[in-house]
Lab assay of single mutants.
Amino acid sequence: PDLGLTQLFADPNLIENLKKNPKTSEMMKDPQLVAKLIGYKQNPQAIGQDLFTDPRLMTIMATLMGVDL
């Protein structure tokens, strides 16, 4: 199971919303991170391994779920 990750990354406004959010806007200036996020739309399971190697993803996930870290 993808634990709902498919829906989190399926939002067509995902990148724009993250660019507008004060907690994630600075991160979204990294083209490699943006490319990763776009890739998760097609393969949400890929985030599982990346969560352990890129701490920014935890902040992004929390933001998408509405959790304040």
Results as ranks from 00 to 15, higher is better:
1 P>W: 02
1 P>Y: 01
2 D>G: 14
3 L>F: 13
3 L>D: 11
4 G>Q: 15
4 G>S: 15
5 L>C: 09
5 L>R: 05
5 L>S: 06
6 T>I: 14
6 T>Q: 15
6 T>Y: 08
6 T>M: 14
7 Q>V: 10
7 Q>F: 07
8 L>Y: 10
8 L>I: 14
8 L>P: 03
8 L>M: 11
10 A>I: 08
10 A>Q: 13
11 D>W: 02
11 D>I: 05
11 D>R: 02
11 D>A: 03
12 P>L: 05
12 P>H: 05
12 P>A: 09
13 N>Y: 10
13 N>H: 12
13 N>L: 08
14 L>E: 02
14 L>D: 01
16 E>H: 09
17 N>C: 07
17 N>M: 12
17 N>H: 11
19 K>A: 10
19 K>P: 00
19 K>W: 04
20 K>M: 12
20 K>A: 13
20 K>T: 10
21 N>S: 05
22 P>Y: 05
23 K>V: 13
23 K>R: 13
23 K>S: 09
25 S>R: 14
25 S>K: 11
25 S>G: 06
25 S>P: 00
26 E>H: 11
26 E>G: 08
26 E>V: 07
27 M>V: 04
27 M>G: 01
27 M>H: 04
27 M>I: 09
27 M>L: 13
28 M>L: 07
28 M>C: 03
29 K>R: 10
30 D>N: 03
31 P>C: 05
32 Q>E: 14
32 Q>A: 15
32 Q>I: 13
32 Q>R: 11
33 L>W: 05
34 V>G: 02
36 K>V: 08
37 L>V: 06
37 L>S: 00
38 I>P: 01
39 G>I: 10
39 G>R: 12
39 G>P: 01
40 Y>N: 02
40 Y>F: 11
41 K>F: 13
41 K>A: 15
41 K>Y: 12
41 K>I: 15
42 Q>R: 06
43 N>T: 06
43 N>F: 09
45 Q>E: 15
46 A>P: 04
47 I>K: 03
48 G>V: 15
49 Q>T: 13
50 D>I: 04
51 L>T: 06
51 L>H: 04
51 L>S: 06
52 F>D: 08
52 F>L: 15
52 F>Y: 11
53 T>W: 09
54 D>L: 00
54 D>A: 00
55 P>C: 08
55 P>K: 10
56 R>V: 08
56 R>S: 05
56 R>D: 09
57 L>V: 10
58 M>N: 08
59 T>N: 06
59 T>C: 08
59 T>P: 03
59 T>E: 08
59 T>Y: 13
60 I>P: 00
60 I>T: 00
61 M>S: 03
61 M>E: 01
62 A>H: 08
62 A>S: 10
63 T>Q: 09
64 L>D: 01
65 M>G: 08
65 M>Y: 07
65 M>A: 09
66 G>V: 07
66 G>Y: 06
68 D>A: 02
68 D>C: 03
69 L>G: 14
